[in-house]
C-alpha cells in the first residue's frame, strides 16, 4: 500500500523537477523547489511507515519547517535584492 503512495509522490517529484528545469521565470523555479520540499516531507513520512519506523516523522516535521523558511528567505532575497542589511529606508520601502 505504501509502495503506491511512494510511487505516486516520486512521479510528482519528477514532474516538479521538470518544471524546475524548464521554468522560464525564476519564480517558477522557486515554486518548483518549494513543492519538491513538500513532497520530500511526504516521502520521508511514507518511507518511515513503509519500514515500520515511526520516528521518521520527526525528520519529516523538521524538513517541513526548514523548507518553509528556505522558500521565504529566497523570496526575500529576490524581492529586496539582499537579505536585509541596515540601510536608510527609502520612501517606497514596503
Amino acid at each position: 500500500m505504501y509502495i503506491a503512495g511512494i510511487a505516486a509522490v516520486l512521479v510528482t517529484m519528477a514532474l516538479t523537477l521538470a518544471r524546475a528545469f524548464m521554468g522560464p521565470t525564476v519564480y517558477d523555479r522557486i515554486l518548483a523547489v518549494n513543492s519538491f520540499g513538500t513532497k520530500t516531507v511526504l516521502i520521508i513520512a511514507l518511507y518511515g511507515y513503509f519500514t515500520g519506523r515511526p520516528d521518521f516523522l520527526d525528520i519529516a516535521l523538521v524538513y517541513a519547517l526548514i523548507n518553509f523558511i528556505g522558500t521565504i528567505a529566497v523570496l526575500k532575497f529576490f524581492e529586496y535584492g539582499d537579505l536585509g542589511r541596515d540601510r536608510p529606508s527609502q520612501p517606497d520601502d514596503i
Partner: peptide, 26 residues
Amino acid sequence: CLLSGGFFVVAGGIGLLRFPDFFTRL
C-alpha cells in the same frame, strides 16, 4: 485515502507542468 491522496498529488504535478502561466502553476 492514500490512493486518492496520491492521485491528487500526481494531478497537481501534471498541472504544474501544463499550465500556461506562473500564477496558474502556483
